[in-house]
């Protein structure tokens, strides 16, 4: 019995210490002038991301690329979480992108310039759907644009 209590306390201590870590920067003070704040915060970014995913799925230029993701809810959830984290972090929000780097994620896919441009157009359409002002839209695209060499032709 004493051994069991000892093991339980040990497990509790390990569990507690593990949970002391958090993947998000929860203590991060959000700058009210950051792009994250100007976009409307986390809920706005997740709403734009859902619209972006819907746009991509309806886009016959690129939707075949996402067939496996659409068919598998676990993959879809990871892609959605990664997209939200990526946009949120890039905009100065309290998230941390935990996915593969862009080059590793797209190597072997042979993504064309036309497909990349279609994806960007789908993102712009999602931002327009939520009336994101031109300044914020360009700022976000300016952050994501430099990823192109790691995505196209890999």
């Amino acid at each position: 019995m004493r051994k069991f209590v000892l093991y339980f306390v040990l497990a509790l201590a390990v569990g507690m210490s593990l949970t002391a870590c958090n993947d998000d920067k929860v203590l991060y003070e959000i700058d009210p002038n950051s792009l994250y704040s100007r976009l409307g915060g986390f809920d706005a970014i997740s709403a734009v991301t859902d619209q972006f995913l819907a746009n991509v799925a309806a886009d016959n230029v690129i939707n075949a690329r996402f067939a496996a993701t659409v068919a598998n809810p676990a993959r879809l959830q990871l892609l959605r979480n990664n997209l939200v984290d990526q946009i949120c972090e890039a905009a100065g929000g309290p998230c941390r992108y935990k996915g593969l780097n862009m080059r590793a994620a797209h190597t072997g896919m042979n993504i064309t310039e036309q497909e990349f441009n279609a994806l960007v157009a789908d993102l712009v359409a999602a931002l327009n759907r939520f009336n994101v002002p031109e300044k914020e839209k360009n700022e976000l695209l300016g952050i994501l644009g430099p990823m192109k060499p790691d995505i196209v032709g890999r």
Partner: peptide, 30 residues
């Protein structure tokens, strides 16, 4: 094995989920 299961259970339930993990899951159909 029992200890590992207990730690994993505690980790899953006591760890503070990230913002994205707190979102309601969605499905996507075409």
């Amino acid at each position: 094995a029992a200890l590992s299961s207990l730690v994993l259970f505690l980790y899953a339930n006591l760890r503070q989920p990230t913002l994205t993990e707190q979102m309601l899951p969605v499905h996507l159909k075409i």
